[in-house]
Design a protein around this nucleic acid. Structure first.
Lengths: 205, 205
DNA sequence: AGGCTTGGTGTCATTCATACACGAACGCTA
DNA sequence: TAGCGTTCGTGTATGAATGACACCAAGCCT
């Protein structure tokens, strides 16, 4: 909860991203903004520590989580901060606490400096990884439409994409399974639902 | 020197690579093999700790160094191992100690398990990064020929490359400066020397 | 029934990647 | 000093991948 606790020389911090209309990250309110973090406990793995930080800050569990970078802790404790980033569909996040909010990472800094740096690096990693790894679906439900997927790319990449070229690219590089169902979502033609073959729950990645 | 020292909850470990005929990494002999590592000292940055590990193990300094990943330390101390990889031209390495040697990373494992994993991940990162970042020159002198550069790619990528296509690719993606000098290296036509524009010493990257 | 909205599809032009061969410049040796 | 062996250095032609582009389909609403 407090990563400057003197007895904890290592802390994990997590930048959790989700997508609503824009890309947003989870920010703990109060004083200077922070992202969830926790001191590493005895016998705990770094990843478990990061997951615990999310759980304790906002009762969030079962998200895609990947290590980002390890930063010096500045003088004093913690002496190292192992930063992670996490991705999750917004509707799976039932925030169980107050005092947390969602913030657009492109807005002016609202976090203590070391956490702001983590969020910035996480955004870069996310945009970069989108180009060569199938992770965008982590923002979506298990079954998703290609239109939803394209929206994720457009939001993170901050540019609109051509629909046909996008679909060709995704079909070529992802191993998609076309389901028999469709999503009826408004006054328009229903969209076919797909899932990633062999997609396991994101917390087992 | 000994990363299991009980008083040091964090250690840095470094996989140092160089190229002679093959890609090789620095291995500390004796008992089970290890790579250089050091416990993080009070007030020391993680990178400084990694450089100190190289210095203490083999009197090596001023190499390109990049953070790789942070591993759990297993039960007990250290509780986290921050792994780095380093690159250097072989002739700049004047090994000042005995008890160290160069090993082909593709050979059967000769290291304690956690260090073997670091070397494996470093190899992957290296091969991957070669594709999109100009780092191969870290294995060469400040001025180098395109033939030397191609050899680096061929060794790390484990495949021969077409000379003309390689040169076109490098010229398009690197910012090279053609010097007026050439390398006379045998009974054949001298090769033009190039340097990377704005290349700073690798330890300032 | 007609209109609005998103879903879904193919072609052509351009760019990029790959395959490929020969003369040049040097050192060595006979 | 002539010839040989070696690496250096260069351009083109073909196939693959990428980027631009327009229309009908299927549903909901009024």
């Amino acid at each position: 909860m407090n990563d400057t606790k003197p007895s904890a020389p290592i802390a994990a911090a997590v930048a959790l991203f989700t997508i609503r209309e824009r890309l947003e990250f989870l920010r703990l309110e109060g004083g200077q903004g922070r992202i969830p973090s926790a001191p590493l406990e005895e016998g705990e793995t770094l990843e478990a520590c990061a997951r615990r930080a999310l759980w304790e800050a906002a009762s969030i569990e079962d998200v895609f989580l990947e290590q980002l970078y390890t930063f010096d802790g500045g003088r004093g404790h913690p002496r190292a901060i192992v930063a992670y980033y996490a991705l999750a569909p917004h509707d799976r996040l039932r925030i169980g606490r107050t005092g947390v909010g969602w913030v657009d990472p492109t807005l002016a800094p609202t976090l203590v400096e070391e956490h702001q740096i983590i969020v910035g690096r996480a955004c870069e990693r996310l945009a970069g990884k989108l180009e060569y790894a199938p992770i965008a679906y982590q923002f979506l439900a298990e079954r998703f439409t290609l239109g939803e997927l394209q929206t994720v790319y457009e939001i993170i990449g901050r540019q609109t994409l051509d629909k046909r070229n996008f679909r060709r690219r995704i079909r070529a590089s992802w191993d998609l399974v076309e389901t028999r169902d469709a999503r009826r979502g408004g006054p328009h033609r229903p969209a076919r639902l797909y899932r990633l073959r062999d997609a396991r729950p994101p917390w087992e990645e």
